[in-house]
Write a protein that binds this DNA or RNA. Structure first.
Lengths: 239, 239
DNA sequence: CGCCAGCTTGAATCTACTCAAATCTTGTGG
DNA sequence: CCACAAGATTTGAGTAGATTCAAGCTGGCG
């Protein structure tokens, strides 16, 4: 797992790479990010980056590791809103004294840093706006998944989304990426039971749609799968 | 239904009333809103205020009527993301050349106007930020509803949300409000079939949780219902 | 008056859930 | 290096909740 914490061969850290993919960053942005990255800190697995109902102190930039935005019901049921991946921002918002509307919990050990404040760079501000718009688009995708897709389609659709997002950070290639999720976590994201997720995964494996051995997921034909589950492209700007 | 298009007895139009409830507005904001309201226009039922994939030209403020943010699947399935009520903003975002990530369709005849641009008033800007944060909170609530609530709970929870939101605009009182939805539309919002929505509504009526005669919905005991479905309060700021 | 959209009802089916137990993995300490 | 524990995955049988399909009903409107 040395790879995960190091700059990949492309020459950029995954988080920077993702932001740069959203909006090509200028020197000021690159410098601010390099600087912020210096002061990175680790977060242990299962720790909360943000607690529902608590005031948001700062905006974080995820450098490494996965987290989940989650909400708990009084009776113990749990729903994962979306996954937080390297290059994602946690706690980005505009209002005064913002309060977290959901908990963000580390699914793996993580590396995070304070995001450079707005106003640092014109291009960085635009990247933040894009990031926020994309996050909202992913929430809409999640709603459609839960409301109108079958269990089989939900799994395929979510895997495609993760693949697309990780590709931007350079963490997925050709439908292949490291996936640090348990079937139980997947179930909480997909609105299913762990048992049913297991059965659907086996079905998908038998159908040669994907393989998920150990901690790596491979989508054998992302294009065909996208067609099959009717996943629309995620776009938030024109041009 | 004269009431709907007129200034209510409280002295403020529902849309202004809602924004004012989010952040107490200053004179500049009130004036800008009054001015914008002058240039209101109507939108016919079933017309689209915004089309998925199309560039967003302007931000709209809903003065009267209901709309739905909806996404269509290739095979005809349909999912409603959330409902757009008087006082809500449509197409509010920060990025350049934004593209709508979902279609917004009028469920009733509507009255809308161009929202006063940002920078008009400090308080109005804050109200916009609040509105956006609330909208995101409602998307999270929708995800939890679809992912982890039973059909019966989904209906109760959504009715409570609509009640809370309409109360802010002065359009609901004591759990009673006009609801211009068909059971089919409700089904598309709740991720259920119309037939099942019908059965669950009857069950809720028999249990004296609500009555829905004609076009008015009455929640007989919102507090008890909130308890029963485990609905958490919607908060986005401290203090 | 008759049409149409929306609502209601019934019966059969199916998807996903529950509960329970077995098996496989992984990490840890002896 | 093996034994063990804890966590995660897999399997099976029975059940419940929601869907499908089809038909009948109701009320508002031209």
């Amino acid at each position: 797992m040395i790879r995960a914490l190091r700059t990949p061969s492309s020459g950029q850290a995954p988080a920077v790479r993702r932001l740069d993919a959203l909006v090509p960053l200028d020197v000021a942005a690159e410098a601010a990010l390099a600087d912020a990255t210096e002061r990175a800190r680790t977060v242990q697995q299962r720790r909360e980056l943000l607690s529902e109902g608590a005031e948001i102190a700062e905006t974080l930039l995820v450098l490494d590791g996965w987290a989940a935005r989650v909400r708990h019901l009084p009776d113990g049921r749990r729903q994962i809103m979306n996954f937080v991946l390297p290059g994602d921002l946690v706690g980005l918002c505009d209002q005064d004294r913002p309060v977290a509307s959901s908990t963000v919990m580390a699914l793996t050990p993580m590396l995070v840093c304070a995001a450079p404040p707005r106003g640092t760079s014109r291009t960085l501000d635009r990247a933040y706006a894009m990031s926020r718009a994309l996050e909202e688009a992913h929430l809409l995708a999640q709603i459609t998944r839960l409301g109108r897709l079958s269990a089989h389609e939900r799994i395929g659709d979510l895997c495609l989304e993760l693949n697309e997002r990780l590709e931007m950070a350079g963490l997925a290639h050709g439908g292949r990426f490291a996936i640090p999720l348990t079937q139980e976590v997947l179930a909480d994201a997909l609105g299913l039971t762990p048992v049913h997720v297991n059965r659907m995964l086996q079905q998908a494996r038998r159908a040669r749609e994907l393989s998920w051995t150990g901690r790596e997921l491979v989508l054998h034909d992302p294009g065909a799968l996208r067609e099959q589950v009717g996943r629309p492209p995620v776009r938030v700007t024109a041009g």
